Amino acid sequence: MNTLLKYLLILFFAHAAMAQNGVQFEEIGFEQAIAKSRTARKPVFYMIYATWCPHCEKMRQQVFTDPKIGAYFNSHFINVLVDGEQGEGPELRKKFGVKAFPGLLFIDEQGTLLYSLNGEFKVDDLLAEAANAMVPEKQLPYLKAAFDADPSNAEKCLAYLITLRKGSDRKALSPAAHKYLATQSDSQLPSTINWRIIANAVTDINSREFQYVLSHQEQFAAVASPARVQRKIGNIVTELLEPYVASLDSLGYKSKRQIVKSMRLQKADSLVFSYDLMLAEHTNNWAAYRKAAEEGVEKYVWGNQKIIKEIANTYLQHLADTERLSYAIKWVKHALELMDSYDGNIILSKLYLKVNDRSNAITYARKAKELTRNLGWNSQEADALFKELNIN
């Protein structure tokens, strides 16, 4: 066997072994990864994961072990695995704007971000995105430079935003969107492409563009749809209020809440109602919870038996005043009118028991038990109620 043939066979089997084993990740520092990138003349691929993230684990076990993924990534990239919460992980997340796990980054030998993704991908979808990351015209630096050179060009703006959105949250898109939209007059805003830019990248509730959407909803509905316009309103309210609820910042929430309420829209008010309840529950502010519930249940969720039961159950768990519990009783009876349910009858029986109405408590406990018999369900909770009520 001649030397060339031996060499080709060695390369073939080495490549096959690498592919069979999936992606060959290294756990090395950023500077070392960049140095290897320069030497090998190929980009760095980073998977930034969290130990608690099920999507990360699924990709490590099912996607990065795939032979096709292994063959492509091992031949095209220096592959690096980083715990996003340990060591260099937090710094890398901040540097490259990783807001969700897993963060998937493609970085050149100068340390410049070429392309980024977040979330879980299937094998073929990840291969397609990795191929995109190797095409200069599809990379972030090229798309940004093209847009910056022609900021009034809607197509270039949208192309940059679509690629940026793959690995960034909506707020990261906002500066480019506003740079383009500043070149558009109010009357030019309601177009199909401008709507796509607004819908994907405008996050400031006080911005000229969003305020124009609010005051010209029919025009934007004509180029998008009424449902999409309402969804945008919901998204921008959610993006404004949710961080304050998540951080339990009652003062910050109160100031932003006023902005949303000033919109005077049913959709916005309904979201405020939900966030009012959530924040009050998470901060154990039961006075605020009952105030929000008693003002809003019939106004915003009267047709949703599931949410009504959840609110009533919260009353059952945390409130003792008979007058307050009477609201919950009224709500659950309405929920049962919308749809008879085992859990609704259980909640109502417990509410009646809590206000010392034994007769009605027995009635709804029996209804719950009857439903378990008819449907073949576990009757453990109903049995416990029967025992507490001393009935059989």
Score class of each variant (00 low, 15 high):
N356P: 03
Q305D: 09
M134W: 06
P54F: 03
V297Q: 05
K261F: 10
S187A: 14
D148L: 15
L81M: 08
I162Y: 03
L143A: 10
D66I: 02
N313H: 13
I308A: 00
G296H: 06
Q305A: 10
E27S: 15
N390D: 12
H15K: 10
N132A: 13
K99E: 13
M18N: 13
C53S: 15
L389P: 06
Y327V: 00
P141R: 06
T39K: 12
A16F: 14
D66W: 03
H318N: 15
R358N: 07
I347P: 00
P43D: 04
K94R: 15
A227R: 13
I236M: 10
P102D: 07
V272Y: 04
G111H: 01
D357W: 04
S215K: 14
E218S: 14
N206K: 12
I233R: 05
F64W: 11
I162R: 13
L279M: 07
R208M: 02
K306D: 12
L140V: 11
K232F: 06
L92K: 05
V63H: 02
N374H: 12
P102Q: 09
I10H: 07
T238Q: 09
A268C: 03
C53W: 07
N378V: 10
Q217M: 12
N345V: 06
N313I: 05
D124Q: 15
D204L: 08
I197Q: 01
V23W: 04
A201T: 00
L181Q: 03
Y46D: 05
T372L: 02
A199S: 15
L11D: 05
L385Y: 05
D124M: 12
Y115P: 01
